[in-house]
Design a protein around this nucleic acid. Structure first.
Length: 562
DNA sequence: CTGACTTGCGCC
DNA sequence: AAAGGGCGCAAGTCAG
């Protein structure tokens, strides 16, 4: 394995040799700047490893990381850089900074619809993979030409490098898996629900609670899992409700409700992260979901399998580091408001962000009286809340933070006009569904009846809330990608030996990372996480003074971090 | 029966 | 009058 201690800079696109890989039946075509060689697929890992060990940096160009990297990782081969043509294509195709004519080709629709493969057990090179019909060399050339001609090119270049690096991290996290103690999880479930029941049976505690609910509501046949039956039973018991959400039920006063709310809480645990979840997703002491970089329109990651991006705090005690290893858990406080301050160049908001608690900083700046007001006001600015408390805060925020609030307001107005907005680095928003945007009264359409007009207006406002949030959520995702990519490089430089012996990422949740590390490196990993955050801020916002304080914890169980 | 939709709730 | 962004997942419900 390579033992280079140098940290690879994120986005060092210019000086790096590029090698394009392409499947050719059972062979792989390896096309470097000087020569093209063809070798059997089973020889590829050794070939890649040999090239990675040489001192001159290389960027592997391939159609889709999910189609190449898992097999390399299985053979113990790690790569420093790649260009993921599928992900880069998706960004470039939607970016308003890009001349789409430069991407146009007969194969463009094929790249548009190319999906990642998530089933790592599938054959390495399935015969009918649509990816094999696409020419990665030509696509890479088109992408480079489009990038060359793009406005704000450096931002896009950074985004493509970070996105590709994210694809590597995603594959590596699935490969490594999150250490998961099924025995601890099972004890946790048994403590709350009773011992594991036979398939299809309610565990003892849920059975008892169901009985209490039926008795309390006078509905002996009620299935509390059925929203319809439950609603009728509640109404039959004299409660004026129109839905059965827990939040609604908490407002009511009825002797059956404590049992119902407790049932809800435990039934949720059982169905989402109960024994069935353990059977389906935990093998050999590891939870291995697949992560999908760019899986959300804003650029956030999605995940598939096991609900990896919404692991309840309740079950995190079962995530336990291996013997002699630790977790380093780090999250950014108030990432989105900080990113908004940076992207808008709002000095006053950046000043409030100086320090651990941005909301407290807003109080100190005299813009609001309490932290709670600061928080609800800021969430309203980011999500488009105009009602109640957050609506009342907006004028004050707009006065004190004109650039920040101006930026999100303008994004909302642009969305309402049906326009594309973009993140700081250049990821574009999708266009709204055809309909309201094209048929506005300002385009000369005869006025419809009031119902349609109101409907269109609702859609217009909703789309404005989406674009308002898009620019901030999307730029926050870019900060997080840069953080992740730089951290990945630092972690590699920190360790020694094969990938499995080095500190490695196991979880990434939008603004939080978990690193699994040999215990003796935990302190250094903590430093690396902080340094990577500083670097991410520099990459996105240059010299603009903006803090991204982290909470960092070195723990044995994920649950002990929060 | 399957598949699409709804409801509710976990995470950020 | 109403007006909160993005996801994934499981169970219930309903249409075909």
């Amino acid at each position: 394995m390579g033992i280079s201690r140098a940290v690879v800079p994120v986005g060092d696109t210019g000086r790096v040799e590029r090698i394009v890989l392409r499947r050719r039946g059972g062979d792989v075509e390896v096309r470097g700047p000087g020569a093209t060689v063809r070798l059997p697929a089973e020889h590829l890992p050794a070939h890649v490893a040999e090239r990675e060990h040489r001192p001159e940096p290389v960027r592997w160009v391939w159609d889709d990381t999910t189609r190449w990297y898992p097999a390399l990782l299985d053979r113990g081969v790690r790569v420093a850089r790649c260009a993921d043509l599928r992900l880069c294509h998706a960004i470039l195709r939607r970016s308003p900074l890009v001349d789409q004519a430069l991407l146009a080709d007969d194969e463009t629709p094929g790249w548009d619809v190319l999906q990642p493969v998530t089933d790592t057990d599938a054959a390495l090179f399935p015969l009918d993979d649509p990816a094999d019909l696409l020419d990665p060399v030509a696509e890479h050339d088109r992408q480079q030409a489009a990038l060359e001609a793009a406005g704000s090119r450096r931002g896009l270049e950074l985004l493509l490098a970070a996105e590709s690096s994210g694809a590597l991290v995603a594959a590596e996290m699935t490969h490594a898996g999150l250490p998961w103690r099924a025995d601890v999880h099972d004890r946790l479930l048994a403590g709350l629900l009773g011992p594991r029941p036979a398939a299809g049976q309610r565990p003892a505690v849920l059975g008892r609670l169901a009985g209490e609910i039926r008795a309390g509501l006078g509905a002996p046949a009620l299935n509390p899992d059925s929203p319809g039956e439950l609603l009728r039973a509640l109404q039959g018991a004299g409660l004026a409700v129109t839905d059965t959400r827990s939040w609604t039920l908490e407002q009511l006063d009825h002797p059956a409700l404590p049992a119902l709310l407790e049932y809800r809480r435990l039934a949720r645990l059982m169905t989402a992260n109960g024994w069935a979840w353990l059977d389906a997703w935990v093998r050999d002491g590891r939870f291995r979901p697949s992560f999908l970089p760019g899986g959300v329109v804003t650029g956030r990651w999605a995940s598939h399998g096991g609900g990896a991006l919404s692991m309840p705090v309740q079950v995190r005690p079962a995530a336990i580091a291996d013997d002699g290893w630790r977790f380093v858990v780090a999250d950014v406080a108030q990432l989105e408001p900080r990113v908004l301050a940076g992207m808008s160049g709002d000095g006053a908001m950046a000043e409030a962000a100086r320090g651990r608690d941005l909301y407290q900083g807003m109080v100190a700046g005299g813009v609001v009286a309490t932290r709670a007001e600061a928080k609800v006001g800021m969430l309203g600015a980011l999500y488009g809340g105009t009602r109640g408390e957050s609506g009342r805060m907006m004028p004050r925020l707009a006065r004190r933070y004109p650039r920040a609030i101006g930026l999100v307001e303008e994004a909302a107005r642009a969305g309402e006009r049906g326009e594309v907005v973009r993140t700081l680095l250049g990821r574009g928003s999708p266009l709204p569904a055809a309909g309201w945007a094209q048929r506005g009264a300002d385009l000369g359409e005869p006025p419809d009846d009031g119902g349609d007009r109101q409907e269109r207006e609702r859609h217009r406002r909703a789309w404005g809330r989406f674009t308002r949030n898009f620019v901030v959520q999307g730029t926050a995702a870019e900060w997080a990608l840069c953080w992740l990519a730089d951290l990945r490089n630092r972690l590699w430089a920190l360790g020694e030996g094969p990938p499995s012996a080095r500190p490695h990422l196991v979880i990434f949740l939008h603004d939080e990372v978990v690193v699994h590390t040999p215990e003796h490196l935990a302190a250094e990993v903590g430093e690396a996480v902080r340094e990577a955050a500083v670097e991410a801020g520099r990459l996105l916002f240059g010299g603009f003074p903006l803090d991204f304080p982290l909470d960092v914890a070195v723990v044995s169980s994920w649950a002990d971090a929060s």
